[in-house]
Write a protein that binds this DNA or RNA. Structure first.
Lengths: 184, 184
DNA sequence: GTCTATACACAGATAGAC
DNA sequence: GTCTATCTGTGTATAGAC
């Protein structure tokens, strides 16, 4: 039984929700603390800076995607085409379930030109995504084609998320998912 | 001969550069004023608020795209396939020339969840883009297909811009442009 | 580990002189 | 139309009591 009300992990988990809703710069330490039921002072006991909190949030999100979604690409028990279809349907659910689209795309577009702090972890996320798709395509197509198709899936989905959020209409993402299925 | 050093248009033009580089929330009035060679006080003589400046910046950008780029879609003197190729090559030049990718995508992802202020003007921009492409596809394909293809071009390019910025590698955008050419 | 209080910097915006 | 000076709010972060 923990002496602290919230574990560090729970604080990060809750902070992800806030950052995803308001973005990095518009989220302030009071927002994060309040949402966790803490005061600013107490919050600073756990993390030295807002940047550190964000880094942990991105890392936890990236780890979650790798463990629960990207891993499917390497599953040996499922037929490759079925794997792709399953993955694409999970993308759709994931990116429509929570508002705000793709945490990494939002963060990188918001912060990139101002600071380089979150570039590496974001690159790592997209690299892992791409490789997970490549593992599927590569059994049917040569490596260069596989890589091209993987990138095409990702760009199409990320672009569709922008239009989906802008027009508040998930059919944009659905269209991109259906187009991506044809790539196998 | 103007008494003022800078016209309102010139101030907006310069402000676009700053907003594109630092984003909306990270740009402050001092940044805008300094880049225009004015003090904050003088800057506020021209615009009542930061939001108003941004609105003018987005409007001027949207107008520029409509006049110089989207208009090509309606040009009667060029063969449709050549029009599409020309347009796509201009997209590439436009989105790689200035750093920061797509002004509207960046702005909407940054501000959308916090305030609705820039949604309408952004929707209008993407609608104009889509219609300009539809005008090309529609001479060869039925209307629903034309619309689908137009959206596919836009989503692919916007997604590719994200990966281009993230990895500082314009080949992502080039790949999306080449794929889009095949859609005719 | 959590709280209150506060230091310090900077943001958006305004007032009034020139 | 531009300037300096300033108001006011808010942000990140810290200090120190409990």
């Amino acid at each position: 039984m923990p002496l602290q009300k919230l574990t560090k992990e729970e604080i990060i988990y809750k902070s992800i929700t806030v950052f995803r809703q308001k973005g990095y710069y518009r989220t302030n330490m009071s927002d994060l603390a309040r949402y966790c039921g803490l005061t600013k002072g107490a919050f600073y006991h756990h993390f030295p800076s807002k940047e550190a909190v964000m880094r942990h949030c991105l890392q936890m999100t990236s780890d979650w995607f790798k463990e629960h979604i990207f891993s499917i690409g390497y599953n040996k028990d499922i037929d490759d085409q079925q794997k792709l279809i399953a993955l694409l349907d999970i993308y759709y659910k994931t990116f429509t379930k929570e508002e705000g689209g793709c945490f990494f795309a939002n963060t990188i577009l918001e912060t990139m030109q101002v600071e380089d702090t979150f570039r590496d972890i974001s690159k790592d996320f997209f690299k892992a995504w791409e490789q997970s798709l490549e593992a599927i395509f590569t059994t049917k197509y040569p490596q260069t084609i596989s890589k091209d198709k993987s990138i095409q899936v990702i760009t199409q989905i990320e672009g569709a998320i922008i239009l989906m959020l802008l027009n508040q209409d998930s059919s944009y993402l659905d269209r991109a998912i259906q187009e991506s299925k044809k790539l196998y």
